[in-house]
Simulated scan of single mutants.
Amino acid sequence: MIKVENLTKKYGDFTAVNDISFVSQPGRVTGFLGPNGAGKSTSMRMMVGLTKADAGSVTIGGHDYMDIPNPGRHVGVLLDASAQHAGRTGREVLALSAATMGLPASRVDEMLHLVSLTDSEAKRRVKNYSLGMRQRLGIANALMGDPSVLILDEPANGLDPAGIRWMRGLLKGYADRGGTVLLSSHLLHEVQMIADELVMIGRGEIVAQGTPEELLRDSGTFFRALEADQLVKALADNGIQAAPVADGFRTDAEPVQVGKVAAEHQITLVELKLADGGLEDLFLELTAETQRETYTEGGQK
């Protein structure tokens, strides 16, 4: 189990992570979602002692990471696949990890086979690896000690569709055997397919958390209208707030309430439906203030 309590990190006047709290449970995959610069990587670095928190705490299995003896046997970590020693071969990287953890050399071959790196690839220097190969090597390294907890920052970067599917099955199987997985990603569709719990972060603060079903169940109503501004005002006059999302608006009210107000004011509705656009629409809405671009359904900015 990973327990994050009131975690905070500041760099001068800039607050990278602001008082976040959540729990990643055994036997479940927790998706940690947010735009670039939202605070995901900083949070994960604090979890494993690479960055010192200004306030709050993180415990893994009830212990501070720095207090865990031989931590690689308990916590598998992949924060940056490009940070591996470029001059070593893939096999040498894993052999060093095995030796450091006191594991037999045979574990190296097991991990290479697990992540589908061939003998010839294992003999190549990491500087000659593609990003996808480095990700596979990083995952092998994280799993080397057969840990009970995995902390992975954007592990799907550089993987092709087959590789992403492979990783999804690997991590889901790991969780099904009782492991704890904390996975950050911007690949929302993939996270929706694998995650049991979601934690969404924007500008260093958690904006939503729960199961995908819970988050989408409360996503409200989506509508578009020819007289959009007039409808938004009419809804507000009836105590119903609407927020822009994609090329329309979303409200917590039921569709029938929106339709009734539109009819009363003779407003032409173009679209009215439950806001079931999926995790991506919900994510973009909840983190709208942190996005560099504003997207419409047609992909225009």
Score class of each variant (00 low, 15 high):
A55W: 14
S24D: 11
E227G: 04
I2T: 07
G56L: 14
H186V: 00
T180A: 07
D218Y: 00
Q135M: 09
G62L: 14
G132R: 07
D67L: 03
A195H: 02
V126M: 07
L274V: 13
H63W: 11
D19L: 13
G37C: 09
K172C: 06
Y174Q: 14
L231F: 07
P104G: 14
L216M: 05
T290S: 14
K123M: 10
Q291R: 10
A86P: 08
M193R: 08
A195T: 07
G62H: 10
P35G: 15
G62V: 10
G132D: 11
E297S: 01
K123Y: 04
D109G: 15
S219F: 01
E264A: 11
D247G: 08
V245P: 11
S43Q: 05
P147W: 03
T51D: 09
V93C: 10
N6M: 10
A105H: 06
G239K: 12
N141R: 15
T8F: 15
A98H: 13
H265N: 11
E110W: 06
D252G: 02
Q291W: 01
V29R: 02
R88V: 01
Q135F: 07
G179M: 00
L226E: 15
G210N: 13
G76D: 08
E280V: 13
S41P: 02
A246C: 11
D153M: 06
D80W: 03
S130P: 00
T30K: 09
S57G: 03
A225F: 02
N36W: 10
